[in-house]
Simulated scan of single mutants.
Amino acid sequence: MSSIRANREVKPFEVDENGMRPVEVHCHGFGDVDFSDFTRVDLSRLDEWCATEGVLALPTMYLHRDRLAEFEAFMRRYAEMRKDGLLPHVPGVALEGPLLSHRGGTPTSTVWAPSRQEWERLAALGQHGLVYTVLSPDAYSPESVLQDDPNLRTSDFSWIVPTLLAQGVRPALGHFTRDNPQRSADNVDAIVEIAYQSEWSGTGVRVTTDHLFNDMPLNIRHAFRTERARRERDRVIESYELPNWTLDNISEIAGPVPGAIIKQAVNCRISACINFDGEHVDLALATRAVQLMGPRNAMIMTDRCDSARLGGRPLHHTGDNGLWYEENGVVAAGSQPLALHIANAKAHGLSDADIRHLTTRTAHRTFGIPVAAEAVATAA
């Protein structure tokens, strides 16, 4: 069954007792709409789709350097529509990149180092609804694919992060290299510290992440995506002795990077995103990570794309799972609706209260989504 059809069969979410709706924090496309083709995105249609599913959405886009002006025009249009009350289900927009140390499943041409002027232009979009941009803590490492970009050395995190935060744009940490895990973890801690020493014009949490356990150095196997891998899954997971994971040993067991993120989340300085589709990350690992961080510091992200196209690239499924793949076999996105993530979380022992935080309350708090405004919009 295609993901589009599956999504349409999902019962819409209802507003909870506090007037909040679930938030799809990191999603790439609903229906046949590729969010990264932002010049063609029909925002009214997107809002209607969200209303049909009963969710709020933070559409996440890729950005080519030569399309920055077009993106600025899109964000101004988005802000005007929000001001007119026309997009109650789309409380913000996000970017994946461009400052990534490796492209992962992102289009190669959307990985680039902005100049200072380009950073200032991106930061200014915080006033028009840009809520976060994914950047790699390893962008300046010797292994980064950006090493030859002439703009890389025109700025550093000590300037970039305050520049973004001063306009309300959060850094979302992800796309790590795998060459020096401890250095990567130290970079996470350094960026978080810079963020909390910076001027902050927004509300909520100042730092978020891309999906935990994906695109980062690990000491464990985090996913079992093929039939052959799944035959080994129970033995491998049992060997990890998940009940014995603690904040004291998580960095040693899982790796310094997930350890740093989880500890910063526990300290309420990061709202960490994690998948519960069972395909990006094994569900037992995702559940244990949430238990360590606390559901109040974590958000389910779907990484969802409903159609076989993302960022101008054709995608395909394999017979092993529901992930979207590029031609070269690299995972590009997920395809499962939020309802499936919730069902998986419940099946692995997370309570209804936990899930309300993971899908709704943490995101509202993190991104400063006004509850009263959402309740009014829903009533209307």
Score class of each variant (00 low, 15 high):
residue 337 P to H: 12
residue 322 G to C: 15
residue 10 V to L: 08
residue 15 V to R: 04
residue 163 T to S: 11
residue 39 T to S: 12
residue 171 P to E: 04
residue 321 N to Y: 04
residue 89 H to W: 13
residue 212 L to S: 06
residue 38 F to T: 07
residue 213 F to V: 10
residue 130 L to A: 03
residue 231 R to I: 03
residue 257 V to Y: 03
residue 361 R to C: 06
residue 9 E to R: 14
residue 199 E to C: 09
residue 324 W to P: 08
residue 347 A to N: 15
residue 72 E to M: 10
residue 175 H to I: 00
residue 49 W to P: 02
residue 281 V to T: 08
residue 28 H to W: 07
residue 356 R to K: 15
residue 225 R to V: 10
residue 332 A to L: 11
residue 157 F to I: 01
residue 359 T to H: 01
residue 208 T to I: 15
residue 20 M to R: 13
residue 194 I to G: 00
residue 29 G to A: 07
residue 201 S to L: 09
residue 378 T to D: 04
residue 17 E to L: 12
residue 206 R to L: 15
residue 159 W to Q: 15
residue 169 V to Q: 03
residue 52 T to S: 10
residue 5 R to Q: 13
residue 231 R to V: 07
residue 332 A to Y: 04
residue 308 A to H: 08
residue 97 G to I: 05
residue 177 T to M: 02
residue 234 D to A: 14
residue 148 D to S: 11
residue 118 E to C: 05
residue 47 D to I: 03
residue 6 A to F: 08
residue 4 I to S: 02
residue 137 P to C: 02
residue 14 E to D: 12
residue 174 G to H: 00
residue 257 V to Q: 03
residue 220 I to K: 02
residue 229 A to Y: 03
residue 50 C to G: 11
residue 297 N to W: 01
residue 235 R to M: 12
residue 33 V to W: 03
residue 249 N to E: 09
residue 142 P to Q: 11
residue 32 D to V: 13
residue 140 Y to Q: 04
